[in-house]
Amino acid sequence: MRKMIWALLMLIAGGAVPLAAQMDDDMPRNPEVQARVKAARVAYLTERLGLSTGESEQFWALYNEYEDEQRAVRRQYRPGKAVEQMTNEEAEAHLSAQMEKEEALLGLRRDYYSRMLKVVPARKLVLLEKADREFRLELVRKMRDRREGRGGRF
């Protein structure tokens, strides 16, 4: 039974860690480029969600706050050393910390989504996830094209 629980934890952690890492890895490191990407993302999502001016102001204030808190939680649970260099005990502690991080992030998501529902309809929040995923895929495509010399600038 214990092995099955650990296998399940490893499966969950294995799926969650790459997703969180991908979110940070997708963003360019240059602050000027980051600012352009963020502005393009806000414009894309605002248009895709069909946010009115009033909705947009309130929504983005809340959403930026939400993203800042997410970053703080992720930073708090960042491992002290590379996973490859961890002992089994450190790896177990890391897995446990990852579960705590996921719970904290889920709590934040619940809190902020309930607050955002007071600003925008539920349909727009559901569409937000899809539109954000589409934007990230487009961003990765443009970055790849740019690296390969085919243009694709933000």
Rank of each mutant, 00 (worst) to 15 (best):
E55P: 00
Y112R: 07
K38P: 06
G54M: 01
A20E: 11
Y44R: 14
P28G: 08
Y63K: 11
D68V: 06
Y44P: 05
R75F: 13
A39Q: 07
D24E: 06
V17G: 07
E100M: 05
G80Q: 10
A16R: 07
L106Y: 08
A20R: 09
S96N: 11
Q70Y: 03
Y44N: 14
L51R: 13
R123L: 02
L127S: 13
M10V: 12
E103M: 12
A97C: 03
R78W: 15
L45I: 14
M27N: 02
S56N: 05
L106V: 05
D26R: 10
S96H: 12
E102N: 00
Q22K: 06
L62S: 04
A97G: 11
A7D: 11
L11H: 03
P18N: 07
E69Q: 15
A72G: 05
M99Y: 09
S52M: 02
R41F: 15
D26F: 15
E92V: 06
S52T: 14
R110L: 01
V73I: 15
G14R: 14
M4I: 09
L128T: 03
G15N: 06
D24F: 14
I12H: 10
R36E: 15
R29P: 06
Q76G: 00
M23R: 05
I12D: 04
V119G: 03
E47Y: 11
Q98Y: 11
Y44T: 14
V17M: 05
L108D: 13
E67I: 12
L9K: 02
L95F: 15
E84P: 03
M99G: 08
M23W: 01
V73R: 09
L117A: 03
G50F: 00
P28I: 11
V83Y: 00
I5V: 10
N88F: 11
A61M: 00
K124G: 01
A61G: 03
G14D: 01
E103T: 02
E55A: 07
A91E: 09
R115A: 01
S52P: 04
R115D: 04
L45M: 11
R41A: 13
N88W: 11
Q34C: 00
P31A: 08
L8V: 11
E55W: 15
R115M: 00
M4F: 06
S52W: 09
A97H: 12
V42E: 14
A93S: 12
V126E: 04
E32W: 14
E67H: 05
S114C: 03
P121W: 07
A16T: 12
S56P: 00
S114L: 06
M4H: 01
E92H: 09
